[in-house]
Nucleic acid binder design. Structure first.
Lengths: 145, 145
DNA sequence: TTGCTCCTCACGTCACGTGAGGTGGC
DNA sequence: TTGCTCCTCACGTCACGTGAGGTGGC
């Protein structure tokens, strides 16, 4: 199969990520995926790295409600990180490696803050609902059932 | 001021809820608010109950990513509950009161499950990011900085 | 070679944003 | 009465959905 060679087709990616082919094409058009070298009209080819990136984008979209414009910024940062990572083996000095790690750390920290902000809002929401349930339970006790 | 009489105008509601007047009109058009008795062309009048309802809808929209069609279902349930609540004082038998409470409890439980499902996904996401940070920290130790 | 999957327009939809031009109400 | 806020179209936009008609590649 083509998958063994890490050359995925759009249908396979669609299946793996859980989004439609149309969405993948649209994201590519917006530049959310990496470079797209392909003569127009021919079938797109994807890698497992593309699948990972799409999964992450979809997660930010669905869980944090980010717009595609916001995802672009995020994708740019990730792309930079990936580019540096590709040069990781051998070609970098220790100083450069430290700089790459610092960059990666900053990105991850910002993402974690976004996630945590959303978590707190959901925690508040859940707490209110549980309070509501407690109030209902109390009223039911008052009614003797 | 008009606010003292619980007769809010769309601009006040917009401010209180944090959405635009256009959005409020759109939601009214979809029937997400209660009954709209008003001769066309005249200014809309809202109550604090409308504000509370809109705040809840916006929360479900933003935190859980529900579509307006899904919000409709949710709003219908809430509306039913509110209608029953209005009849709460005096007119109901104990049996009817218990039924109302059971309904309210079921709704709150379903909402809580939705919220918790989202919370778990965000927990997973946060855990992965923290793991990533731990990995970065480890690499930095290996590099001696 | 036959099918299936993919391709590119291109129009439709959902959830609003953004004026244009006009009227309501404290 | 003067302003400000509100009103109703109506077209624009973002993030895709949904065919129509045609070609690529195992």
């Amino acid at each position: 199969v083509s998958a063994t060679a890490d050359r995925l087709r759009i249908g396979e990616v669609s299946e793996l990520v859980g989004i439609t082919a149309r969405t993948i094409r649209y994201y590519e058009e917006l530049g959310l995926l990496g470079s797209d070298e392909r003569s127009k009209g021919r079938h797109r080819v994807f890698t497992q790295a593309d699948v990972a990136r799409l999964k992450e984008l979809v997660r930010f979209r669905d869980l944090l409600g980010l717009s595609l414009e916001e995802l672009t910024t995020l994708a740019d940062a990730e792309q930079l990180r990936a580019a540096l990572r590709d040069r990781w083996e051998g070609e970098l000095t220790d100083k450069e490696r430290v700089a790459v790690l610092q960059q990666a750390e900053q990105i991850a920290r910002q993402q974690l803050e976004l996630v945590n902000a959303h978590r707190h809002k959901l925690d508040d929401f859940a707490a209110e609902l549980e309070q509501k349930l407690a109030l209902i339970a109390e009223r039911r006790r008052e009614l003797g059932t």
